[in-house]
Computed example of a mutant assay.
Amino acid sequence: GLAWQQAVNGRVRAASGSALAATLVNFAVGTVALLATFAVEVAVRGRPAGGLPSEPWLYLGGPIGIVFIAIAAAIVRFTGVLLLGLATIAGQVVGAVLLDLVLPTAASHPGVTTLLGAALTLVAVVLAGRTPARHR
């Protein structure tokens, strides 16, 4: 699903000439899908109990997502979908390991195999990003 999303965002960006247009289309479609899903959920189970969270940092996901989609739509034409997907996964893995190391919890103690796995994702990005000798 993510690969398809990145490819479509790249095509929308190419057709419109703007990464912001691709971002707008992406979030418009996503918002409609979420609202439709929420409407079905309310129809089946009723309104959710409680109110919205009061911690402001919980609402940073939207702006961060907008920036991420805009950057991804802009660079997918240079990297391709595979390399962008690998780099995204590697970034998530490295970020998760760093969070576990910097802000440890009772459940977050990355071991040697976890660190080796994170390193392997970085190796995958480097290998996929190499230009074949015939193109140099």
Rank of each mutant, 00 (worst) to 15 (best):
A90K: 00
V123W: 10
N26I: 01
A39D: 07
P104T: 11
A15C: 04
R136T: 06
L98W: 03
V25Q: 04
V42A: 13
V126D: 00
P63K: 08
V8I: 15
V102Y: 02
G1H: 11
A74W: 12
H135L: 15
V76G: 05
A36G: 13
A28H: 09
P53H: 02
V32W: 09
R134K: 14
V29P: 02
G129K: 11
I69S: 13
H135M: 13
L58I: 06
V102Q: 00
S108N: 14
R130C: 09
G51H: 06
L98K: 02
A73Y: 00
R130W: 13
G85K: 02
I71Q: 12
L84K: 09
V97N: 01
F78Y: 13
D100W: 11
I89M: 12
A21C: 09
I89A: 14
R134C: 06
L101Q: 11
R47N: 09
L99M: 10
V93K: 03
V81Y: 07
F27W: 15
A43H: 08
G129T: 10
T23C: 13
V81I: 08
A14V: 05
V40E: 06
G85I: 02
I89R: 01
V93G: 03
R13I: 01
G30I: 08
L82V: 15
R130H: 12
I66Y: 03
A15S: 11
L60D: 05
F68C: 06
A118V: 04
T79C: 07
R11Q: 14
L83D: 01
T114Y: 02
Y59D: 06
G62F: 13
L58E: 04
L86H: 00
G95T: 01
E41H: 10
F68P: 00
R45D: 13
L127H: 04
V29Y: 03
T79E: 09
T79N: 08
V112F: 12
I71E: 12
V32Q: 05
L120K: 10
H135R: 14
A119T: 07
G61S: 06
L98I: 06
V40Q: 09
V29I: 13
L99K: 00
L20V: 11
L24P: 03
V123R: 10
D100A: 14
T113S: 14
G129R: 11
Q92S: 02
V67T: 08
T23R: 05
P63W: 06
G65F: 08
L101G: 03
L60C: 11
E41Y: 12
G129S: 13
G51P: 07
G10A: 01
L86A: 03
L24G: 12
L103Q: 14
G51Q: 08
G10L: 00
A19D: 07
R134E: 15
S16E: 03
V97Q: 12
G117H: 04
A73V: 02
S18P: 09
G50H: 05
V112Y: 08
G50K: 08
I75V: 15
I71Y: 15
A72E: 05
A133T: 09
L60E: 06
Y59M: 07
P48N: 06
A107V: 13
G62L: 15
I71C: 14
V125N: 12
R11M: 11
A39L: 11
G30F: 09
N26Q: 10
S18Q: 07
G1K: 10
P132Y: 03
V126A: 15
P56M: 09
G46L: 04
V97L: 14
G50P: 04
L86K: 00
T37Y: 12
L120A: 15
A90W: 02
G51M: 08
W57Y: 10
T88N: 10
